[in-house]
Amino acid sequence: MKQSAVSEPVSANRSSSKQRLRDSMSSLGMLPVLLIVSVVLFQLENSRFLAGENVLNILQQAIYLILISIGQMLVLVSGGFDLSVGATVALTSVVSSTVMVKLGVIMPDSPNIAAFAGFGSTIGVGLVVGLANGIGVSFMRVNPFIVTLATSSVIQGLTLLISQGSEVGPLPDSFVSFVGSGMAAGIPIAALLALPVIGVVYLLVDWARYGRNLFAIGSNPKAAFVSGVRVNVSLTGTYVLCSLLTAISSFMLTARVSSGQPLLGAEFPLSSITAAVIGGCSLKGGQGGLVGTILGALFVTMLSNGMDLVRLGSNYQMIILGIVLVVAVLIDRNRR
């Protein structure tokens, strides 16, 4: 009897995980085709697009958006969204850089300690921002648009106060060279560092109770509450997880740009929502997946990279990205 009692939830969990994977793959729609068509068109336009150096560059650029888009995907599945991810990137960059610079002055011979302290402050920023968003949405029952827009404004003000509108640096050379531009077996260190983070999210969403609760909340929060799901706690945890993923991405991106940037990450709210929606997430909640979101982030990054190679101005790129988001929303409506 004990063996049966244990095996039933495990079997059910595996079944629901496979079903969500099938739903996620079926919701990709035209994304695989768009990826292939984009690759062909950009390669025909510029033969350097598929060159090894540029492929690595795309991977390096994509990893930051992938992490943020995964966090955005979790919030979208819950029935909300997070407009504060861009401001969180900037605040994390400035705070972590400030910590590293100050410790670098105090302990000039211990750059690794400064880097670890900077990472600790990164986690702190992610927790605080995530709790502010989560409590506002779940316990105070304020619309996610208002909450995350308000926190974004507060965060931007704090970022400018801390940095005085200037770059923060210099950062430890070992941190910049290892995390920002380091390679291992031909793969960017940033991508290798992101893999275990993505793995943890995969386990949480596809194999833990948290994932089942998240999809239940996004589909029908009242029914989820009646079923015994702690809706407020789960929602708060989701916003915290989104902010943590965003902060970790910012920490690695800070190494890439080699200084704390108070204006870093302004494009991420639009890019992350676009990547998640075009990857199969529904703006109504209850639908989304890790694989589709990663592919969506790769598509958005590849689109930006390809437009750079064909020398399309940044203003035109923003217009095209906005059009892509509108098309993704229309596809989402037809899916439902």
Rank of each mutant, 00 (worst) to 15 (best):
P9H: 07
P196C: 05
G289P: 00
V326Y: 03
I273S: 05
V85D: 00
R230M: 14
Y316V: 09
G292D: 07
L312S: 04
F178G: 06
L59N: 02
G29I: 05
I123K: 04
Q156G: 10
V168Y: 10
F251M: 01
A51R: 15
S314R: 14
L270F: 03
R333L: 02
V201E: 10
P144E: 04
Q60A: 05
V168D: 02
F215I: 06
Y202F: 14
A208I: 09
V310N: 02
V200I: 14
V101F: 01
T274N: 01
T246Q: 00
E53T: 12
S304W: 00
M318V: 12
I187T: 05
V277Q: 08
L158F: 15
N213C: 12
A275D: 06
M302A: 06
S96C: 00
N232Y: 13
T88Q: 05
L28Y: 07
P170C: 05
N305E: 13
K102C: 06
A185L: 15
R141V: 09
M318S: 12
F49V: 11
A90V: 05
V77H: 10
A276Q: 11
N54P: 07
A208D: 12
G296C: 03
V37M: 12
N112E: 11
D332Q: 06
E45I: 07
S138H: 09
N232L: 13
G260E: 04
I70L: 13
S271F: 06
L41E: 03
S227K: 11
R14M: 15
N133A: 02
G260D: 04
F268T: 06
N213S: 15
S234D: 13
L192Y: 02
G260F: 02
R256K: 03
G71H: 08
L263N: 12
L131T: 08
R14Q: 15
P188C: 02
L56V: 08
G289I: 01
Q164T: 14
V89D: 04
Q261D: 02
T151F: 09
M100D: 01
M302K: 01
L65I: 13
S272V: 05
I162F: 14
V128G: 10
V329W: 00
L283M: 07
L263M: 10
V95P: 02
A117F: 01
T293N: 01
L31C: 09
T88N: 10
V99Y: 03
F225A: 15
G289Y: 01
S15N: 15
L158K: 13
R336V: 12
V101A: 08
S15R: 15
I123C: 13
V200R: 13
Q156N: 08
G79R: 09
R212I: 04
V99W: 01
M30D: 02
I323F: 14
V40W: 12
R14W: 15
V291S: 03
V105M: 09
A87R: 02
T98C: 04
S7D: 09
A275C: 10
L31W: 11
A114Q: 04
F175A: 03
G79E: 14
A190Y: 00
T88D: 08
S219R: 09
M318E: 08
T293K: 05
P9T: 11
G130V: 06
E8V: 12
G322L: 05
V329Y: 00
N334H: 12
I63M: 04
M25S: 08
N143R: 12
G169A: 06
G79K: 11
S258V: 02
Y64S: 08
V277N: 01
V233K: 15
L171I: 03
K222M: 13
S166C: 11
G169V: 09
A5S: 15
I68R: 05
